[in-house]
Design a protein around this nucleic acid. Structure first.
Length: 816
DNA sequence: CTAGGGTTAG
């Protein structure tokens, strides 16, 4: 993705703030004359001088058409008396261009002309063209192009080739092609300029096409320069076919120097052909001159890493040290990346020691890689320490530390660092802004999000889809879908990530209709959802127990060809079970060709709500047979099945097995299942002791389960104790107070009933009424007790009365 | 006088 960068000192120099060097020999006294952005000087002279001509010419360079009257002289004289000749101005121009002062170089040329030297004497046009190119102003390049055309200088192949190159560097591919077509003679350099220009401009296929055209249509055979560019293009488009052809050609011609060798290895690695990369690499052991080339080793190691050959990368690095190839900063950066990948802190620390002994610990890039390594290997403290001690921080290093803090689940730390950063720098880049937005999202802090949003707009990142997606996510997490939609609508383009952020926002905030609409709109834009989109929407379907929603999403995912995805199917199993359609869950489970642990856990959990416990136990046996490893979720499913069926014996068996056979430390969830199981079976004291003895903190759910058991087994004394535990955890708890009151009521403890009910009133607590809903034509209609707001409520209540009569006729006896 | 150079920090 394209990243906006603040202007650096280089570009500042290019635009406006032209620096004129004083330390180089300056034979001419210079006056300034405005010319577009850049300023030019010209020799002090009469009003008829050429300098005054381009002052009036609306930022156009006016090249002198006729030499001035005195120009019969071969050698001009400047005002301070220095003799100027063509060759000394040429040398000066070259010097200025090489040192990065193109404006001064151009001034020298004009001065030369003003001194009466005719342009046709000049033989440094390629250098002058380079100077124009360095101004990064395509208009000025076109002007010198026209000027040279008039002079007839374009017949010179050097001049043409230089112009080609400069056009590429100014990013005007169209003009380059036009010139290339018109050039009457093309040599290898012309072709190479085109091939490498295409390569650098990102048109790798065009680059390879030109390479082939040169050989096949024009019979020009490539040299090593052409091969280097073409190999770069092969790497980028991963064209192993072309790469191998070039490899063969290089071998046949015997032009394999160290640059070509490393490019070839790089090409094979980028194409995923590790075997051939190794083959080329082994060749260097026969060539003493290039065996010690560090870069080749670096390319080889980083190639191994990017192809996932981590042990080989380690081995090669060790070999490199053994045969004493000098590692450089790039080796260190690459190896630190390897440590991060391996999550090997011990080796990372050894590399840190090596970095210090090599004296590379002050290298900004190495320091940044060290910070990254420590964070990724889980040593946040050391990562921060290196950052704090670093003498040479830059935006990349700040980005490394801030984004790693967010990834390491320290969003507060990240926001503090960001605060320090922004005070010192005043601008942000996209990596930092993304990290900060993620921190806001995970902390759900909207004010900070709004502040960063302001910064996003100010820094002109508001049309960046990555940043936009992160902003949508922040607003969605904070529940402000209106703002999320606004940000989304303003994005110039949307991709899967941004759509996902919006859809999940609607889903998580329980807007099923908007969620589905967004899914349809995404489809309309021809963007296909990925498995994660599907899984996350389905988890919302499950949360909402919304059957129609679930079916529609299922159909949608089917049409998108995601029905064979494990993640999607696991979510479908859970969602259908939650919506009460266990048959669909089972059908999906049976049809799945690829199942993982989560698939088994989902179906066990789903079935646990509906079928006989024995079936669950059998299924668990099958799960083990298929080599699946039970985890906490598996045991939660098993234990809750035992609890529903009152199977104490099996409950204890699985609980013990979890600890002993699978070395899984029971969590609150599993303890809750056991307390529920014991309580339902009337082992109230045992259940109570279990809560007190378990190593984790209790919550209202585990106590609530026991309270319900106390109610059904009529132990009002324990109920009081249990209830007090709940009220201590949640003083405003209303549901459990009602449960307690009902318990006393059932056993005729009227004084206690009054006490609890008075407390409820005194605390101003109100129980939110129960609620049910039904889906009709993609709309969810909700109903609460006594609600008459629905416009068909009369008919609805009439239907309810009729149903009640029918139910009683059928023999149902209501408890109330 | 003109083309080109490998790995490479968030």
């Amino acid at each position: 993705m394209a990243m906006a960068r603040p202007l650096d000192s280089y570009s500042l120099r290019m635009y406006g703030n032209s620096s004129i060097r004083r330390d180089l020999p300056r034979p001419f006294e210079v006056i300034h004359c405005e010319l577009g952005h850049a300023s030019f000087g010209s020799v002090t002279s009469s009003s008829t001088s050429f300098g005054s001509k381009f002052r009036n010419s609306r930022a156009e360079i006016q090249f002198p058409e006729n030499p001035s009257s005195e120009s019969i002289l071969r050698h001009g004289t400047s005002e301070n008396g220095a003799v100027i000749d063509v060759s000394s101005s040429g040398k000066l121009i070259r010097e200025y261009v090489d040192d990065g002062f193109p404006e001064d170089a151009i001034k020298v040329y004009f001065s030369m002309l003003e001194c009466g030297i005719p342009p046709e004497e000049f033989r440094f046009f390629p250098c002058l063209i380079k100077a124009f190119g360095a101004l990064s102003d395509k208009k000025k390049v076109r002007q010198i192009h026209g000027y040279l055309l008039k002079l007839g200088a374009l017949d010179d192949i050097y001049v043409g080739n230089s112009l080609l190159d400069v056009y590429w560097k100014c990013g005007v591919a169209k003009d380059t092609f036009a010139l290339f077509e018109k050039m009457c003679s093309k040599d290898l350099v012309s072709w190479n300029t085109m091939i490498s220009g295409l390569c650098h401009s990102g048109d790798h296929l065009g680059s390879l096409r030109t390479f082939n055209q040169m050989i096949l249509e024009y019979g020009v055979f490539p040299n090593r320069v052409a091969c280097l560019s073409a190999l770069s293009s092969c790497s980028s488009v991963e064209s192993l076919f072309h790469g191998r052809e070039i490899h063969a050609y290089v071998v046949k011609k015997g032009i394999g120097d160290e640059f070509l060798v490393s490019k070839l290895i790089d090409m094979y690695m980028k194409c995923g052909d590790v075997k051939n990369a190794e083959y080329v690499f082994r060749g260097i052991f026969n060539e003493d001159s290039i065996r010690g080339n560090t870069v080749i080793w670096n390319v080889m190691i980083s190639g191994y890493i990017s192809n996932g050959y981590l042990p080989q990368a380690v081995e090669l690095f060790q070999e490199m040290l053994v045969i004493q190839i000098q590692p450089d900063f790039s080796t260190m950066v690459t190896i630190l990346d390897l440590c991060s990948e391996l999550l090997d802190l011990a080796v990372g620390m050894q590399i840190h020691a090596l970095v210090i002994s090599l004296g590379l610990d002050n290298d900004l890039r190495v320091e940044t890689a060290l910070i990254d390594m420590y964070f990724k290997c889980g040593d946040t403290k050391s990562g921060l320490e290196i950052f704090r001690m670093s003498q040479n921080r830059n935006t990349v290093m700040w980005g490394a530390v801030i984004s790693n803090c967010v990834k390491s689940d320290c969003p507060n730390e990240a926001l503090e660092l960001f605060h320090d950063y922004i005070i010192g720098y005043g601008y942000v880049d996209s990596v930092i802004i993304l990290a900060v937005l993620r921190a806001c999202s995970s902390l759900i802090i909207k004010p900070k999000g709004l502040e960063v949003h302001g910064l996003v707009v100010k820094s002109r990142f508001d049309s960046d889809i990555f940043v936009g997606g992160a902003l949508v996510d922040v607003y969605a997490k904070c529940g402000d879908m209106e703002s999320a939609q606004k940000v989304f609508d303003r994005l110039p383009t949307r991709d899967l990530i941004t759509w996902n952020a919006l859809i999940l926002g609607y889903a998580q905030n329980e807007y099923p209709n908007e969620t589905l609409k967004a899914c349809r709109d995404m489809q309309f834009e021809q963007i296909r959802p990925n498995a994660e989109t599907g899984a996350r929407i389905l988890s919302v379907c499950a949360q909402l127990s919304a059957m129609i929603f679930c079916k529609e999403v299922h159909g949608y995912l089917l049409r998108q060809g995601l029905d064979s995805n494990v993640l999607v199917n696991n979510s479908l199993i859970a969602a259908y079970a939650k919506c009460g359609d266990i048959n669909s869950s089972w059908a999906i489970f049976e049809k799945m060709r690829e199942k993982n642990e989560v698939s088994w856990n989902s179906i066990l959990r789903g079935l646990g709500m509906y079928v006989h416990a024995d079936k669950i136990f059998v299924l668990f046996g099958k799960m083990k047979e298929e080599g699946m490893k039970p985890d906490h979720a598996t045991f939660t499913s098993l234990l809750s099945a035992c609890s529903h069926a009152g199977r104490i014996e099996e409950g204890w068996k699985y609980f013990r097995s979890m600890v002993e056979d699978y070395k899984l430390e029971p969590q609150l969830e599993q303890y809750t299942c056991m307390v529920d199981l014991l309580g339902r079976a009337g082992h109230l004291k045992q259940a109570y002791d279990m809560i007190l003895m378990m190593p984790c903190n209790s919550d209202d759910k585990i106590w609530g389960s026991l309270l319900a058991s106390c109610k059904s087994h009529g132990d009002e004394r324990l109920a009081e104790v249990v209830a007090n535990h709940i009220f201590k955890l949640d003083p405003t708890s209303i549901g459990y107070r009602v449960l307690l009151a009902n318990l006393y009521e059932e056993y005729g403890k009227w004084n206690e009933v009054i006490r609890v009910r008075t407390e409820i009133k005194g605390r101003g607590l109100r129980k939110s009424p129960g609620c049910s809903w039904i889906e009709i034509k993609n709309k969810i209609h909700t109903f609460t007790a006594g609600d008459r707001s629905h416009n068909q409520s009369e008919e609805i209540y009439a239907a309810v009365r009729n149903l009640s009569i029918e139910v009683e006729k059928a023999g149902y006896i209501s408890h109330y």
